[in-house]
Computed example of a mutant assay.
Amino acid sequence: MAQLQRIGIVGGTGYAGAELLRLLVSHPQAKVVAVTSRGDAGTPVADAYPQLRGVVDLDFVAPDADNLADCDVVFFATPHAAAMHDVPALLEAGKRVIDLSADFRLRDASLWAQWYGTDHVCPELIERAVYGLPELNRDRIAGADLVACPGCYPTAVILGFKPLIDAGLVDKDSLIADAKTGVSGAGKSLKPGFLFAEMHDSFKAYGVAGHRHLPEIRQILGDLAKDDVGLTFVPHLVPMIRGIHATLYGRLNTQADLQTLFETSYAGEPFVDVLPAGATPETRHVRGGNMCRIAVHRPGGGDTAVVLSVIDNLVKGAAGQAVQCFNLMIDAPENSALAAPGALP
């Protein structure tokens, strides 16, 4: 059995940090010993999250090295361009780091700077980071000391396209990802476009000219294809709290049994569920759980594969995936703290 790991969560007041706490407090090999917040240092965690009263008896602390000194594993649930300032010292001190932000996802530091608006402060660590999608990198994650957890959109899109690209069944130059997210994907900061009166009864595309997740998706799909891919990615904001629904289109270059392909590709994967032929997954069917549910269709028997891929953006798209990686890193059962199904309604 894996040894008990002392856990630090940097950025504990955001939605992803809250999900990490919710999951890790029930993990048999994890003990959360530090939860950081610059603005709430000194206040009880349970004041921010009343659902954790009687479960988490900690105060928020400032995010400095002394407060993380007793940790074996540190999770970063911080905005982009924050973790990279602290990760080098933590690795030097022998900590293992799981970063939920984008700081170490892109292998090209100049491309990262272009999309995130600032220079990377430790580009020498980018190659050291392992992309934290277990369905692609399970063995490498197990031996890593720095894991870059994928974004929520990339998780749904990559898992949806992977079997088709692996099998060489689609034109890699004309892939389309039409994806929707709930408002929790934008975090807790107050923004006019995310107010209830602005979001309710509305539905809009955004980032059409280019979204930060686009280079990440292209990078990983390109790895699968062993070549550059052509991808049109259009995200949308819908008036729900949580969830990602990705509708993916690929032009088939040959006839194949797509249902069998997907079932075979994900046979034995604990957190990918390929639905029966003709099914359509819904975001509410994964709410609160770490499952990615996928269905594959060929409308009218034509030459276009349509893949429907749904996840909870805060779980499989963030905190749950991070815990899944943590389980691999400490040689715990991969479903530890993640086995509960999603919540309905």
Rank of each mutant, 00 (worst) to 15 (best):
H200K: 15
A225W: 05
A256L: 14
A337N: 06
P235I: 07
F203T: 15
A332T: 03
H200S: 15
G185F: 07
V157R: 02
A197P: 01
G187R: 04
K316M: 10
G301T: 05
R138Q: 10
P163Q: 09
L338T: 03
R287I: 14
L252K: 08
L23W: 02
A256C: 09
L164P: 03
N137W: 00
V55E: 12
A295E: 01
Q219D: 07
L258A: 02
F60V: 00
G289K: 01
F161P: 00
T254H: 07
R212N: 14
T254P: 00
S309H: 05
E124W: 08
F326G: 00
A197L: 11
E269P: 00
Y266G: 08
K188E: 15
I217Q: 05
S202A: 13
L90S: 06
L221H: 01
L258Q: 04
S26G: 09
G8V: 10
A142N: 01
H120A: 04
P215I: 14
F271S: 00
A337G: 06
V32T: 10
L24F: 00
V73R: 06
A83R: 06
R96I: 07
F203L: 15
D66M: 10
G168M: 12
G278C: 06
G243H: 03
A337H: 08
R107C: 10
Q114K: 15
N290W: 00
L4D: 05
G302V: 03
D99L: 02
K31I: 12
L338G: 00
F161M: 07
H211K: 01
K162T: 12
D257K: 03
L20P: 03
S184Q: 08
I217S: 01
Q321Y: 01
R212S: 13
A318K: 03
T118C: 12
G230M: 07
R38G: 14
L261M: 08
A225R: 04
A246S: 11
S174V: 14
D228T: 10
T260E: 13
L21G: 02
R138L: 09
A69H: 09
L100V: 10
E198R: 11
V87I: 15
S101F: 04
R284M: 14
E127C: 05
P134R: 04
R53I: 14
A319Q: 05
A129E: 02
A113Q: 11
P123S: 08
T304H: 13
R212I: 14
D331Y: 04
P281G: 07
Q255D: 15
L248M: 12
R96T: 02
R53N: 07
V10H: 01
I244R: 04
Q51K: 13
G342R: 03
E124H: 11
V306P: 02
V33D: 04
A340I: 08
R140W: 11
T232C: 08
M1R: 13
R140T: 12
A129W: 09
V56L: 12
F60H: 03
G151P: 02
A65F: 12
P88L: 10
I126E: 02
R284F: 12
P235F: 03
I244T: 04
V157L: 10
M199A: 14
